[in-house]
Write a protein that binds this DNA or RNA. Structure first.
Lengths: 236, 236
DNA sequence: CGCCCCTTTGAATTTTGTCAAGAGCCGTGG
DNA sequence: CCACGGCTCTTGACAAAATTCAAAGGGGCG
């Protein structure tokens, strides 16, 4: 069950450097000292907010992973984005709109709940926050464009390969292992494929030695091989 | 060939009400009186800017249609968005990034070329502009999310149908006709389909009387029929 | 241990893409 | 004015890709 964990102190927050408050100087830090967003914990699979529900709060992800997904009336669903530490989400209310997607943790998570009215005030007062949010929007837009190309112009193997390559470029440990806490079904929902298709390619690549996997952790053994094989002729 | 048509006067601009300057009050209009963006004309098929090129100008589309597309190294390409009158585009430079896509007119067009440095100043001075740009980014992000669902979770017929339905909901004349200045190939690039697939569905629907077409203009004769047929079980 | 969920794999089927050819349309230049 | 070349669009036949259906294997957890 979700539970309030208390009030956050943005100034001393451990992930402030990843948040929209990252660029505040010492002088501006005082301005946010009165801002104590609720820190809320959620279990994997709970709903942080639901699509088409009024958007009154934005959130910053403190740790864990969150998926943003859209569900069609017929039950099919598509994951629109996977969020990481420091990501801001749920700000549709800034444009006067309801949430456009549903936010669900894929692991245990902790988020800061930021009331939009307060956040709007802060944003107006502090140009650094303004700027930081603008950059995030532009970057997300770019990522969304890139994802549309993945979905629209590439085939299954290419999509999966470039997803894995992208994924394994962050948080990879010294030995090259990366946590991949997505089920085959979730990878499918993200890439517009079925579970079976994802599974087939993964198995094939494991057989060929391009990829290793151990309980939710993968290692790209031969990124170049995989890239060459699947992204041949410049599709990745 | 593209050609400079002179300097624009934002205050009296005919499409100001559609632009990021729409919400300025009489008082603020003076602030932009010194801002005279170049007005530039382009022919269909020219390049306004090219992906991976430094982004120093944003643009506002005055009339005509522009497609934003991404080309993969292997030549495959995908249309990421189709712009209409009043749309702002090419602002990647705000995030310090090169253009993420290529902008090409699909008709003769006229744009205002807005130097990012000047636009940034205006944005800082006038909260209305700030606000207006923020809302646009959020809305684009929502549209991008919706498009990802189209591409990832729907099949050919469903994508095409919902595209046509969306398209015909704007600029439809009294008799129900809408200009559709996209070739089958372009519709395909937008929806992640081949020319042939698009053509097959269109022909089929014309045969069935759901759709009429005359030299670049279409009419959805029985939107409900089409919706029922193709979007059965709630996919649209 | 047994249950449940996730994954894998196979086989059949559907969907979409590919290739090829012909039809329609339009503008150019003879 | 008409013929020609270069387009886009359409259509068919076939191939490839991906989904669907079905069944079995595996691992974690109560």
């Amino acid at each position: 069950m979700s539970h309030l964990q208390g009030r956050g102190h943005c100034q001393s927050c451990g992930i402030r450097h990843l948040s929209i408050f990252a660029d505040l100087g010492a002088a501006q830090l005082g301005s946010i000292s009165a801002f104590h967003p609720a820190v809320v914990g959620y279990d994997s699979g709970e709903v942080i907010y639901h699509q088409q529900t009024p958007s009154n709060n934005a959130f910053t992800l403190r740790h864990g992973l969150v998926k943003l997904l859209k569900v069609l009336p017929n039950g099919r669903s598509h994951i629109v984005r996977v969020l990481r530490r420091g990501d801001l989400f749920g700000f549709d209310g800034f444009a006067g709109e309801a949430y456009n997607h549903t936010a669900i943790p894929m692991t245990e998570v902790e988020v800061c709940r930021l009331p939009l009215t307060e956040l709007l005030d802060l944003k107006k007062q502090l140009p650094e926050i303004e700027q930081s949010m603008m950059i995030r929007w532009i970057v997300h837009l770019r990522e969304a464009e890139d994802m549309m190309v993945e979905l629209g112009a590439k085939k299954a193997g290419e999509r999966l390969a470039s997803f894995l390559i992208r994924w394994s470029n962050v948080d990879r440990d010294a030995a090259g292992w990366v946590e991949l806490p997505l089920s085959r079904a979730e990878i499918g929902e993200l890439l517009g494929l079925t579970v079976e298709t994802v599974s087939r390619f993964m198995s094939e690549w494991k057989r060929q030695g391009f990829l290793q996997e151990q309980r939710g952790t993968i290692r790209m053994h031969q990124v170049d091989e995989l890239r060459r094989l699947v992204c041949a002729s410049g599709s990745c």
